[in-house]
Amino acid sequence: MKIYTTLILWTAFMLNGFSQPPSDKLKKNPYKNSQWYIGLAAGVNYNTVNVINEYSIIHATNRLDDELYRKDYTLTNNISATYGLKLMYQFEQRFVLGSGLLINELRFNYNQELPGNTRTVVFQHDHHLRYLDLPIYFRFMIRQVNSRMWNRSWKKPGVPPIIPFVQGGLNFSFLINANKEVSRSVIENDFEVQDLSFSEDVGGLLQSTTVGAFIGFGARFKLGNVYLTPQLNIRRGFSNVTNDETRYTNDNLTQNAYDVFDDKSFTSLEAVVSILIPLKYLSKREFIPVEI
């Protein structure tokens, strides 16, 4: 329901932006003082886990051995993809308000060992989460402000073809689905035998909505009438992604993989490239976009 409401509001947000141009009778034509952009974005992300509270089914019988059974969050195989639509509203030469609807896939993994003198049991837990992201952010374009009366000027203003920017904002993530793969191996005399392997839907063990913030930087390249914007963002979740009320409710995980989720949030580094198309044109016949 929340996702549908968000979609409706997002559509309203878009329609509001594309309402008919204001009156040309104004001395300073507002139509030429702003621009809307829509585009596609795609990229990769690298995800790390911030543990808030540790939970485990496997504990030591002695506090001195606690460390042996701690989950080991791995730093490899945590790369995944992000892709979707972007919408931006430039209301000033240096300021842009941005949003979008993006699919953000996240991966994280951990191992848990039961060490032994002759036999070691290793559980491997791999996770693949898919969120619908709705970011709201401000972008600051690092450029010189051109002071001119746009509707009195006879020549096209000099907008730099490459504009670096910094940006920051909030990110609202709605969980679409989450999957977990578990395998158990027994290692004995350097021989490893996998004796358990299964896949499990873990969507119910996670919060359906999470909130985070991000900051980043990039540059806008003008390519004809479109803009290419490579950017690098670092994202940090504010809230616990684990649903603490359902932590022990998946019997297959608790009884076979001896696993429950920690309370945690994510930090991810993402590299995204967007192709943005301006939506307001001085001449629609000749496709001359408004440039501010």
């Binding site: 929340k2 968000t6 509001l9 042996l68 002759t118 909130v211 009320e245 001896y258 429950v260």
Partner: peptide, 29 residues
């Protein structure tokens, strides 16, 4: 309006939380 919608959370159906499952391990097999 969006922020209000996104930040509000519908009440979850009741789920038990007074539940745990623990196994106590020793590295000496």
């Amino acid at each position: 309006v969006f922020l209000l919608v996104a930040c509000s959370d519908k009440p979850e159906s009741f789920l038990p939380n007074e539940k745990f499952n623990s196994i106590f391990e020793n590295p000496s097999e």
